[in-house]
Design a protein around this nucleic acid. Structure first.
Lengths: 123, 123
DNA sequence: TTCGGTACTTACCTCTGGGTAAGTGTGGAG
DNA sequence: CTCCACACTTACCCAGAGGTAAGTACCGAA
């Protein structure tokens, strides 16, 4: 998203929320973690077709700082790291569900009118 | 937002929705139009402290294309243009209200713990 | 006669979000 | 002995999101 995160004085709650979700893959990470409960780094990478490792790490760190996700490190070889939603992350995901439904409606509407927009096909 | 709008195949409804709200001022424009019902260009500019005319126009045009807002031109001198939400824009705004509440909660939480984050003060 | 207000458009520039690719340390498999 | 998988880190690069400032056409007020 090209929306620059302000993390400064907010005008209303919406942009305080948007600020935290701003980032190309953040809402998808939330969605993925919500669906699977807990996921490893590699699983997330494979689950989000097109993410670069750099951005995945960066987004995960920011979301951890923002208190949205929990990072559990298992000191094994090879290393294992598991990510999961915190209560705040879970509630954020719930808050986004309405937007998700709206988005699905929109995709349906667009598909119904001529403009062929497909959802997750042959990505 | 530096979140790049994809307008391509979406993975889930959430990013289809996010795609349309991606843009530094879009959610604020939605909020402003929802609060006032109908607003003129200059009113919006003054209502969103910090917005540049270029970005305001650009966002308004994109949101009009996306069917979120309606643009009514009054051929007077000086010219008058009024913006308002379409039904789709209104429902999107409703879908964002949960995110707005979450954001407010978050601001309260942050304020409660040491990190002083203020909402719309001496912008 | 100049200024201000309306709603823009245009050219130019900066900043940074995001991508690409290579490197790191360890151990097991082949 | 080499390769691969894990979960990263680092350096470098580019496109585009967003900002700045000036210009446009019109009229009324000072």
């Amino acid at each position: 998203m090209a929306a620059s995160a302000r993390r400064g004085p907010y005008i209303c709650g919406i942009d305080a929320g948007m600020d935290v979700v701003a980032g190309k893959w953040k809402s998808l990470i939330l969605w993925e973690l919500n669906n699977y409960g807990t996921r490893r780094f590699g699983e997330l990478r494979r689950g989000l077709p097109g993410v670069s490792e750099k951005m995945l790490v960066q987004h995960l760190r920011e979301m951890e700082e923002d208190g949205l996700i929990h990072r559990e490190i298992y000191r094994e070889v090879p290393p294992r790291v598991e990510y999961s939603l915190t209560p705040d992350g879970t509630s954020l995901n719930e808050a986004l569900s309405a937007l998700g439904s709206w988005g699905q409606q929109r995709v349906k509407r667009l598909a119904a009118s001529g403009s062929l927009v497909e959802v997750s096909s042959t990505a």
